[in-house]
Amino acid sequence: MTATTDEVLVKAQNVTKVYHTDEVATHALRGITTEVTAGEFLAIVGPSGSGKTTLLNLIGALDAVTDGHLEVMGHNVARMSKRQRADMRLNQLGFVFQAYNLFPVLTAQENVEFVLELQGVTDNRTERAREALDQLGLLDFADRRPTQMSGGQQQRVAVARAIASRPRLVLADEPSANLDGENARILLDMMHELNEQAGITFVFSTHDPRVIAYARRVITLVDGKIDTDVVKEREAMAEQT
């Protein structure tokens, strides 16, 4: 098991997010204070509307905090320009979404290669993309388009795309929500292995007990607030998985 280090990747202090729709204010997050350190395998759980996805979007610099202080990779996100946020997402973060969000007109390999191209990788780009697919057991599907793959395979391509750019932190929003039991297990095993072997930090939002079982730390959100923040013992983890 990869031990977590003291390096703080995410630092949230009293983070608040309010959505305004037609003069109605919706408080998605109410004063979140927490930290994510390098090497963690962290699950954010809670019922629908508890603020899990919102918190991931804020950490991923996809959305802006309403109040409070949020640092990602040592940068105050609120002070970053649009271009700086894009650079951080490209070079230090990886994303996996519930709906896979692969590009249907590209093959699995091209989907993965796209990120590397955006990063400006020219040497061994194809090899790196294929290596990422291989890590997820998808090398035989490299030339297939998303519509020619199962949901589980598509989600593994999404993970390959997320890790190909060698990010420090992967944010996964309900990654197993559309997968059956077997595919969910395969996916989680692979992500767990990437965490263990490559030291990639994973933060999930989920309400899937299968995912929670894999997590070493579980933050529970209720009504936009942290209800519990539990770090599991190794023995308990082994029993659960």
Partner: peptide, 16 residues
Amino acid sequence: RAEFAMLSALGMKTRQ
């Protein structure tokens, strides 16, 4: 729209 959102999430710049 979702694909452009994904491109943006992946770090693609406005100009690109």
